[in-house]
Simulated assay, not measured.
Amino acid sequence: MIDIGLTHIALPVSNIEKSIDFYATYAQMQVAHRRIDTDTGVAVAWLTDHTRPFAIVLIETKSIHPVLSPLAHLGIGCKSREAMDVLCDQARQAGVLVDEPKDSGYPVGYWAFLRDPDGHTLELSYGQEIGLTVEQGNT
């Protein structure tokens, strides 16, 4: 089987371990592949949440210019509003909560923005129907 369609997004990171911990904590992602690139000597990790064939590719580098900052962001759907509130409480205590949770109603739902260790933005949400809308082909 060959991969087609959107498969990944690559993010430059300054400390791959900190970024792996961040995405494991707030996006429930795990390392699917890890290596030191033979051409560049750079650490690379592919993270997935195993819900679809998509990965965040972390590439360790010395120079970071956050590409994903509001409004550009990665979006993660949470299993419940309560689960999202727990993650937001953790993020608040860790100093990485950028925007407090807010309910914007249908179709946006309940959402909040977090900042990863390099300034990229992660959106947590509950009640967005992106997957359902795409599956049904609604416009």
Rank of each mutant, 00 (worst) to 15 (best):
M1H: 14
F22L: 00
T40R: 00
G127A: 02
L68F: 15
A72S: 09
H50W: 11
D39L: 13
F22C: 01
R34L: 04
I36Y: 10
E123Y: 00
P53L: 08
V67N: 05
Q128N: 15
G5K: 11
L124A: 01
A55M: 03
S19D: 10
E17W: 00
A27M: 05
W111V: 09
I59D: 04
D39H: 14
V13I: 07
H8C: 10
S14Y: 05
T25N: 12
A27E: 06
E123H: 00
Q93E: 02
P117Q: 05
H73Y: 02
R34D: 06
V57L: 08
E82C: 03
E17T: 07
E82I: 07
L47A: 00
V44I: 15
H65W: 05
H8K: 09
K62G: 07
A94F: 03
D118A: 00
S69Y: 13
T48E: 00
P101K: 12
S69T: 15
T7C: 10
L6D: 06
G131I: 13
G137F: 13
D103G: 12
G5T: 09
T133Q: 15
M84P: 12
I59N: 05
A43N: 13
H50M: 11
I9K: 01
G109Q: 09
D37E: 08
V86W: 11
T38W: 03
L11T: 03
G131F: 15
L87Y: 07
S19Q: 07
W111P: 06
V96T: 10
D103V: 11
S104T: 05
T38E: 06
A83P: 04
M84A: 10
A112E: 12
F54L: 10
E100G: 02
I4F: 14
A43G: 06
V67M: 10
S80H: 05
T48H: 02
P107A: 06
T139P: 05
G75L: 00
H33N: 10
L74Q: 05
H50D: 14
A32W: 02
S69I: 14
K79D: 15
I16G: 08
Y126E: 10
T61I: 01
Y23E: 01
